[in-house]
């Protein structure tokens, strides 16, 4: 069954067609790579999928529910979650609280409970703490739980952002260049983490990445776009030898 179903997705910025009739279908627990040269429209596709931008044309279905016109926060409730190309953490909040914010909608107590510190409040907060810690454990971040997010080293910030995205309990995870700015060793580690997430959390992953080694190494299927249009799709082997792809990357 497909989690995400995208048909003819397009958006126009003034005269620029940043995304042009983009089609994609992602199955349960699949890992799909989305690649393309700089400015190809990859991040824009994420912004469309998460409701940051409204498409000028096309449809998006998440678990058979249309997301068009829905606000980003509601689309999260439908089961998708993302990270950003330029890390966007809650910098002045602790690592633990970063996760707990994402856990917001899975907690169930109201305004009044929080002021009277009712039993429900305490139970829910305790549960959130536990789950957040478990999640941090998976990403080797537990020892930093009381640090402010801004004080983490770069690689760990990337990890925290992925952990935060997972805390919303998504069925599909959208990762925008998670390896950007990482050294080869960190990238290696990240590859392992992504595989781990896929298996342990049973999610589908859509991955934007420039690091070809990473993409070719872990993606089952790859979609290549250039100037907003799909120019190739297939498994890593097919993509590596595709003429159009080579041309797009090397230029004419």
């Amino acid at each position: 069954m497909s989690i995400l179903e995208v048909k003819d997705l397009s958006i126009q910025f003034g005269g620029l067609k940043a995304v042009d009739h983009f089609n994609l279908s992602v199955d349960h627990n699949e890992l799909v790579g989305l690649i393309g040269p700089n400015g190809a429209g990859k991040t824009t596709i994420f912004n469309l999928l998460t409701g940051v931008y409204t498409p000028t044309e096309g449809s998006i279905y998440l678990n058979d529910v249309s997301t068009i016109g829905k606000r980003p926060s509601d689309i999260v409730l439908l089961g998708s979650s993302r990270t950003f190309q330029n890390i966007r953490l809650f910098k002045n909040m602790t690592v633990l609280d970063n996760i707990k914010v994402a856990y917001h909608n899975r907690m169930d107590y109201n305004f009044v409970s929080s002021i009277f510190k009712t039993k429900k409040y305490k139970i829910e907060e305790a549960r959130a703490n536990e789950i957040a810690k478990e999640l941090l454990e998976v990403f080797d971040l537990l020892e930093f739980k009381d640090h402010l997010a801004k004080n983490l080293p770069y690689g760990k910030q990337r990890k925290l952002e992925i952990a935060r995205a997972l805390a919303t309990n998504p069925q599909i995870l959208l990762l925008d260049e998670p390896a950007a700015g990482m050294n080869p060793q960190e990238t290696e580690e990240l590859m392992a983490t992504i595989k781990l997430i896929k298996n342990q959390f049973n999610v589908s992953i859509l991955l934007i990445e420039h690091d070809m080694k990473l993409v070719m190494g872990i993606c089952e299927r790859i979609v290549v776009i250039d100037y907003g249009k799909i120019i190739a799709k297939g498994n890593p082997k097919e993509i590596r030898t595709n003429k159009d792809v080579i041309k797009a990357y090397l230029g004419e």
């Binding site: 980003p72 950003f84 809650f90 909040m93 609280d97 994402a102 917001h104 409970s113 935060r164 995205a165």
Partner: peptide
């Protein structure tokens, strides 16, 4: 007490980064 609840955290997260806050399901 309010600021130390999930509601308070949601508000803080908006101050930190509106877009990220929405991206984790906060109705900003």
């Amino acid at each position: 007490l309010f600021m130390n609840s999930r509601h308070g955290r949601a508000i803080l997260s908006i101050r930190e980064d509106e877009i990220a806050s929405e991206s984790v399901g906060i109705n900003i």
